[in-house]
């Protein structure tokens, strides 16, 4: 079981790195899905089956598919890949990487220097999560609902194909007909 966990973790990390370094966006998205699936495996192994299911259904199944749809809608070609290659190679990305690496080392140091204990290992059934969610965190649920509502309306409003409207003051006399 422990071995499985480590393999899943490795896959998740490697897939993440692949996401970041791809030039073709569809490839990147597929690696992202792999990363999410590996994460789901980790969740399942540490005793959170409900969240593992959510990860697969919502994250990998819905959000990533949304990405894929949009990419398909934009109808990108080979040119885009070429451009990504140029951008990725020319611009110096050592400094951000170095910065992040130092930060990672420091946070790792902080984590390691703290106390540690093995996982409890207890399976947390979905029923328990649901009960907790709809009792203690009810207000959070409401807020999340409002957020999703705003997201839906916002997405609809922003993505609508707008008619090109010229303000009446900006119109010239002849162009009115």
């Amino acid at each position: 079981m422990t071995i499985l966990f480590y393999i899943a973790a490795l896959i998740a990390i490697v897939a993440s790195i692949m996401v970041v370094t791809r030039t073709n966006i569809i490839h990147a998205l597929l690696y992202m899905v792999i990363s999410l699936l590996a994460t789901a495996v980790m969740f399942f192994l540490i005793g959170a089956p409900f969240i593992a299911a959510m990860e697969i259904i919502i994250y990998a199944g819905a959000i990533m598919v949304l990405f894929v749809f949009v990419v398909m809608m934009l109808n990108l070609g080979k040119q885009a890949v070429e451009q990504e290659k140029r951008w990725l190679s020319t611009e110096g990305w050592y400094f951000p990487s170095l910065l992040s690496l130092i930060l990672l080392l420091e946070i790792g140091y902080l984590i390691v220097s703290g106390q540690t204990a093995p996982f409890n290992g207890r399976q947390i059934p979905p029923a328990e999560v649901g009960k907790e969610l709809y009792s203690t965190y009810l207000i959070g649920v409401e807020l999340a609902a409002i957020l999703l509502m705003a997201g839906i309306i916002g997405a609809y409003h922003l993505a609508r194909r707008k008619k090109y409207v010229v303000h009446r003051f900006l119109k010239t006399e002849g162009a009115e007909q």
Partner: peptide, 13 residues
């Protein structure tokens, strides 16, 4: 932002 975070965390460390 990352640089700022780095500085503050370095101070903590």
């Amino acid at each position: 932002i990352v640089f700022g975070v780095l500085v503050s965390i370095t101070i903590v460390v």
